[in-house]
């Protein structure tokens, strides 16, 4: 008996801290959210008994449906653009001389050293009517009146792509880098043209990276509420704003919790779909 315990001890010591961390900071808050979603709202904010399913029933609501579908659409657009931009980007980095690769990757990570709200604010300075871009374009005479760039849906999309592009590039890079060069040579020897090599060899082999990249872009994009507030002028509501409002202005915590759980559910379904086509290990 003692022997068995001894064998397991290293496991407990190694996994214990991580497990505790997850239990305290992920599992416990999640249980709290689940708990709140079944309580009744207190008119002064906060929650009270009795237990009820009311929040879940009120999820079935026309405007929520619109908001969810709009958010999903925005996330989809973000993901597609990130892939279209990120794939060539990752390809170039993966094929760069080995000594430069580290530096190039570092450059991608570099913006993370600055708080993302500040970076988004930087975009505001660039895009606003009296901002840098409009002033430059007007001073060199390309446009005569300032372009309406900030506070549009396009600005929100730009902000999302900007914020999430690194999350697309990194898994793509990992999977492109792993590509066995001899396969490309073999394809070439067998007479495949360059477009052929790409569509028949490179693309299928990097599929795991594409899936991992899209999941890692799509899922966080559902929750980014401050981008639409800062770059879209807060005029369109997305899932993130909706949830935030339930807690901070509508005083309806149970509904906010139920909405969060619905979002988590959507995420889980997506992950499940993903495991059908890719492997979770490619996410790293």
């Amino acid at each position: 008996m003692k022997h068995k315990w001894n064998n397991r001890l290293p496991m407990f010591v190694m996994i214990g801290p991580a497990f505790l961390w997850m239990a305290i900071f992920v599992l416990a808050p999640l249980c709290y959210v689940v708990g709140i979603s079944f309580l009744s709202k207190d008119s002064s904010g906060g929650v009270m008994f009795p237990l009820t399913l009311a929040s879940y029933f009120s999820l079935w609501n026309e405007s929520f449906l619109t908001i969810f579908s709009r958010s999903l659409l925005l996330s989809l657009q973000t993901t597609i653009i990130c892939l279209a931009v990120g794939y060539p980007f990752a390809y170039v980095i993966a094929n760069a001389p080995k000594k430069h690769r580290g530096l190039l990757l570092l450059l991608i990570m570099l913006p993370f050293w600055i708080n993302s709200v500040i970076r988004i604010y930087g975009w505001n300075t660039l895009l606003r009517q009296e901002g840098v871009i409009n002033s430059v374009l007007m001073s060199i005479g390309i446009i005569s009146s300032p372009l309406e760039m900030l506070y549009t849906d396009g600005a929100v999309l730009l902000g999302m792509v900007y914020e999430l592009l690194p999350f697309t590039i990194l898994p793509l890079y990992a999977s492109i880098e792993k590509l066995d060069r001899s396969l490309l040579e073999a394809a070439s020897d067998l007479g495949a043209t360059k477009p052929h090599i790409f569509t028949r060899v490179i693309f299928p082999l990097t599929m795991p990276g594409i899936f991992a990249g899209s999941i890692q872009t799509f899922i966080p994009s559902l929750g980014l509420f401050y981008i639409s507030e800062m770059m879209g002028g807060g005029s369109t509501m997305y899932i993130g704003n909706l949830i935030k409002n339930q807690f901070l202005s509508a005083r309806n915590w149970p509904l906010g919790a139920a909405l969060s759980l619905l979002l988590i559910l959507i995420t889980l379904v997506l992950m499940k779909l993903y495991t059908k086509v890719g492997s979770l290990e490619d996410m790293a």
Binding site: N245, S249, A250, N252
Partner: peptide, 9 residues
């Protein structure tokens, strides 16, 4: 407060 948030949404 919920009604106010509703119309806002």
């Amino acid at each position: 407060a919920t009604y106010y948030d509703d119309i806002f949404t």
